[in-house]
Design a protein around this nucleic acid. Structure first.
Lengths: 99, 99
DNA sequence: ATAACATAGGATTAAGAATTCATATGAAAT
DNA sequence: ATTTCATATGAATTCTTAATCCTATGTTAT
């Protein structure tokens, strides 16, 4: 599947676990264990998600010994999050986005 | 559920049907029947999706007789789509975002 | 008042995704 | 060479979501 259909990209932001990872990395690159502790989920689940996130270049990885350090692709992610923040402030002052 | 957790917002972009609706409305507001024809899906499925999209203010609705005219919230949606386009061009020249 | 049209909504089923568990890989330390 | 630690991967299960079907609501026209 190619990126030209954008749905795969957005899936990376459309559930809590993945969004937790993104949030955890907003300020600093982290290794898997630290992410796992920070968001309080199974290591295995985190790894599965990290794989998808980095397949889409939402995250970058680099190896450091036996660790892998994941970092946010800030060029794309930060501006998108900002837009959504703005959207929510403007449109969702009460509660919205109900399922 | 409140918008403060953004995953619900992003769900609106994370499958083909919803993204087709968004694309169909990129240039002009349309009524349900026209959207349905344009994206070639069941009227009922389209209505279900329209509800979610407008609950999140990704779309606006206005009534016109027996029709309902849906339009894109361009303030939010267009800039986000542009960012993703840019991201894809930069990062996904081959194929990426595989599931 | 009834018929025709446009759209919405509920309930069920089917499809897809996330979670979990068990195991594998690979790197550093002893 | 073996153990330990960090991470990844595959398979099975469990959830979640979307798709479908059927019916309801509301609007206009006759």
């Amino acid at each position: 599947m190619k990126c030209k259909s954008y749905e795969t990209f957005f899936v990376n932001f459309s559930n809590k676990s993945k969004l937790n990872i993104i949030t955890a990395l907003r300020n600093e690159p982290l290794n898997v264990k630290t992410i796992t502790k920070k968001i309080n989920e199974e290591q295995s689940a985190v790894s599965h998600n990290l794989k998808k996130l980095s397949a889409c270049h939402v995250l970058d990885v680099k190896k450091a010994g036996k660790e892998r350090i994941y970092s946010l692709n800030k060029d794309t992610v930060i501006p998108i999050l900002r837009l959504v923040e703005k959207h929510v402030i403007k449109n969702c002052s009460g509660s919205c986005c109900k399922k």
